[in-house]
Design a protein around this nucleic acid. Structure first.
Length: 431
RNA sequence: GGAGAGGUGCCAGAGCGGCCGAAUGGGGCGCCCUGCUAAGGCGUUGUCCGGGUAAACCGGACCGUGGGUUCAAAUCCCACCCUCUCCGCCA
């Protein structure tokens, strides 16, 4: 959520920043929020003053009871009763207005960081680094899509995955399965110096999925377990962000850094037919997420740190990659500023987004009610959250198959993964 | 899933429908005492929202959550959630 007090005090500034997202309907939502907020404060003031009167009368009643002034007490009680009627009406108006305001606020996206460049959509994202580790030319044997190589090597069995679970599910076997797990282990080990490993639940409450911004707007993108009112997590960002929901943290303990390897479940509604062939877009995949809770001051530096960490892992795998900064028109709802890391896959001739490194400013933390308190300071402020995919398995797995495919059809396993591969250095077809 | 017990401030723990934002103890912070430490003495110590330029201050809300009764609820009633113990089931 954006800060309603900022909208209240600097409406023009908020509107100007929001206009950069290139979604004209947003301005209407902002104005709606402004008027609901004004109305809410009117009601609050009135309701509170009635409550103050009732509280005062109740005290007087107590005094009169003690002095046995029963008729006086009766008179005050009657007066208080009628005030109570008014209070009741105001209270229900308050509930109405405040839930209406909350509803609107939950739909309003985050303000883009001033340095984010303007753009309409993903085509306007700028490459800020790279391409790096890009060969001058790709050989013909690298121009084979991973689904062909994977199937030929017996390490990818999407046909049977579909038999078991339907379309858009994937299954790795043998060294393919081992490599999927190796990638996760690598990503965890590379960040274990600073990040605490968490094994969070995969099913979460509605409130948890609301905190990170997936709900209420993007309910169709998530798998729901309706009978039990639970949701499958689309990313470990969801449980990790809510780890400290409703808590006030000591600023001196920040930043907090967590990492988690989880399955991620996505309905991929609205992307039917896109990237359905291999494992570029699936309903379930494994990912290692790194996440930080910081003060506002620490956040910019953390964004750089997360980006560097993700980049270093991709670089260590030897894959061709580049870094993009996401423009205002492509920035996710909760995002304040984001970078994407893309890996080139010569077989399907595509740049694949393998990581998104994002700073959410206080947007998610306000929804989750994560505060931080500076020692000696009065009151508290909303914390900042940032996260990144340290490594998302399927696309990296696919890029490895395509980049490191040899003329004989085998695939060389990147050296950094070999320690996790039980001695294997190459994946060859079983004779 | 069944039976029972319980959820109060940083922690422990008391709380009669009004004088309870909440006793008492511990902890923290400040001052005093003290060569240092320990012990001791005194004081202080919650959060959120609205108003106030800010501080002072004023008003409201908060005793697991949500409803209800009442002039007035931590206290009474109802529902739910969570924790603990026992039983059942289970990796």
């Amino acid at each position: 959520m954006i800060d309603i007090r900022l909208l209240r005090s600097e409406p023009e500034l908020v509107k100007a920043a929001m206009a950069r997202r290139m979604k004209p309907a947003l301005l209407g939502e902002l104005e709606h929020a402004e008027s609901l907020d004004a109305r809410l404060r009117e009601i609050t003031t009135e309701r509170d003053s009635i409550r103050a009167q009732v509280n005062g009368l109740s005290k007087d009643v107590a005094t009169m009871r003690r002095t046995k002034d029963d008729s006086g007490a009766e008179a005050l009680m009657a007066k208080s009763r009628s005030l109570g009627e008014t209070e009741k009406k105001l209270a229900s108006e308050y509930d109405e207005a405040s839930s209406a305001l909350r509803e609107v606020l939950l739909l309003i996206p985050n303000l883009p960081h001033p340095q984010v460049s303007d753009g309409n959509n993903d085509k306007d994202n700028k490459v800020v680094k790279g391409p790096l580790q890009m060969p001058k030319e790709f050989a013909k044997h690298q121009r084979v899509p991973h689904w062909e190589t994977g199937t030929a090597l017996g390490i990818l069995d999407n046909e049977r995955a579909t038999k078991i679970s339907g379309s858009m599910f994937t299954m790795q076997r043998g060294l393919g399965a081992t490599m999927a797990r190796a990638l996760c282990q690598l990503a965890l080990d590379r960040n274990a110096d600073a990040f605490e490993e968490i094994r969070p639940p995969s099913l979460v409450l509605t409130s948890t999925l609301t905190a990170t911004g997936q709900l209420p707007k993007f309910a169709d993108d998530a798998f729901a377990i309706e009978r039990d009112d639970l949701w499958c997590i689309p990313t470990a960002e969801v449980p990790l962000t809510s780890l400290h929901a409703s808590e006030t943290l000591n600023a001196q303990d920040l930043p907090l850094r967590y990492m988690a390897h989880t399955s991620c479940f996505r309905r991929e509604a609205g992307s039917a037919g896109r990237d359905t062939r291999g494992m570029l877009r699936t309903h379930e995949f494994d990912k290692v997420e790194i996440l930080a809770v910081t003060t506002a001051q620490q956040a910019p530096e953390m964004l750089i740190e997360l980006t560097n960490r993700v980049e270093a892992t991709i670089a260590a795998l030897g894959l061709p990659y580049r870094v993009l900064e996401i423009c205002t028109g492509d920035l996710g709802q909760s995002h304040h500023r984001s970078f994407d890391i893309e890996v080139y896959a010569p077989g399907c001739d595509q740049w694949l987004e393998v990581s998104s490194i994002s700073w959410f400013s206080d947007y998610q933390a306000r929804r989750a009610d994560i505060r931080c308190k500076h020692a000696g300071a009065k009151g508290s402020e909303i914390a900042h959250t940032l996260n990144a995919s340290a490594l998302a398995v399927p696309r990296v797995w696919a890029a490895i198959l395509e980049n490191f495919r040899q003329p004989d059809g085998s695939v060389v396993i990147p050296e950094v993964l070999q320690p996790y591969m039980r001695g294997a250095k190459v994946i060859s077809a079983k004779s």
